Computed example of a mutant assay.
Amino acid sequence: MSTSPPPGLGNLAQSRKEDFKAFADAPRRVQPEALSRTALRALDEKSRTAYDRARRRWHANLGPIRTPQLAALHEDLWDIVDSNQQDGDTAKGAVAVDAFPGLGKTTAVLAFAREFHRREIAEHGAFTAQGHERWPVCRVGLTGNTGMKDLNRAMLEFFGHPGRQTSTAAQLGLQALDCMLRCEVRLLVLDDLHFLKWRETSGIEVSNHLKWIANEFPVTLLKVGVGLAD
C-alpha cells in the first residue's frame, strides 16, 4: 500500500521556476488501496493515520478530470502554440482564457503548461545550445493592482533574477526579455490578468506594455483571467 505523495508538492509556488519544474516533473499520484472495514480496523494507529492522510491528499488533488470542455480547450491551445513557429521578427499569436471565477481556468491552463514543458524538454533537452537551462514555460501569477513594473518584476521573480529588486521598470523589462531569450521560453502564462490596473491612469501604459511583450518576446502569450473581453 503506497501512502507517500510526490515529494514537496504541498509546498510549491508555481511562479518560481524550480517549483514549476517540480510540479511538471512530478509522477502521477497513486490512489490509496481501497480497504475493507475489517482491514481498516486491523491497522495499527500509525498505519491508520498514514492511510487517512493519503486518502485526504488523494481526494484533495483529484483531476484535472478530462471533460469534453477541457479536451476542447487543450486541443485549441495545442493548435495555437504549435502553429506559432514564426521567426523572431514576427509577432506570435496570443490566446486568452476567460471565464467566471472558480471554473478551473488556472487548473486547465497549468495542466496544458505541464504537458508542453514535458514535451519541449523531451524533444530539445534540459539545456540550450548555449548551455543555459531550458525553461519552455514561464508562469506568472499577478496580484491586486499590478502595474507595468510589478509585471516585469514578477517575470524576473520566476527566474530568480538578482536585479529584480533594484532596477527601473524599463530595465526590468529588458532583463525579462534577456531571460526569455537565454532560456528559450516558448509559452508565457499570465494568470489573473484582471488584476492589472486597466482602469487606472496607467491602464494605457500597461496595455501598450503587453503589446510590446507580444511583439518582442519570442513566446506565445497565454492570458488567463475574468472579464478579459470587457
Rank of each mutant, 00 (worst) to 15 (best):
G63S: 04
D192I: 02
A13T: 15
K149F: 07
L73I: 14
L174Q: 11
S36P: 09
A71M: 14
A129L: 08
D178S: 12
G131S: 08
P32W: 02
G63H: 02
A91F: 06
D76R: 14
E200P: 01
R134P: 05
S36C: 12
K17Q: 11
R41F: 07
A154S: 14
V109F: 00
P136F: 05
P162E: 10
L77C: 00
F127E: 08
R134E: 08
A113F: 08
A214S: 10
G63Y: 00
F127I: 15
D230P: 07
R55K: 13
S167K: 12
T67M: 05
D191P: 11
L35R: 15
Q86S: 11
S47I: 00
G141E: 12
R199S: 12
D178F: 07
R41P: 04
A154E: 13
L151H: 08
V30W: 01
D79Q: 11
L190G: 00
Q86T: 06
V137G: 00
T107Q: 08
L156P: 01
D87W: 07
A54N: 02
T106H: 04
G147E: 11
Q86N: 07
K197I: 14
D192Y: 04
W198T: 02
A96D: 05
E157N: 13
P27S: 07
P5L: 08
T128L: 13
R48E: 13
A126F: 14
N145H: 14
L196Q: 04
M155Y: 08
T67P: 01
N208T: 00
A229P: 03
A214Q: 12
A42R: 12
Q171N: 01
L142R: 02
L151W: 07
P6I: 01
R164F: 09
E75P: 00
T90D: 04
R186D: 06
G8C: 03
T106V: 07
C138A: 15
E133Q: 13
I204H: 15
H209N: 09
H117T: 12
R48F: 13
Q171M: 03
L62G: 09
Q86L: 05
F127S: 09
F23L: 06
R134A: 09
A50N: 03
T38C: 05
P162C: 12
A96N: 10
T220E: 01
T146D: 00
T168V: 02
T49W: 06
W58L: 06
L187H: 01
A72P: 08
H194C: 00
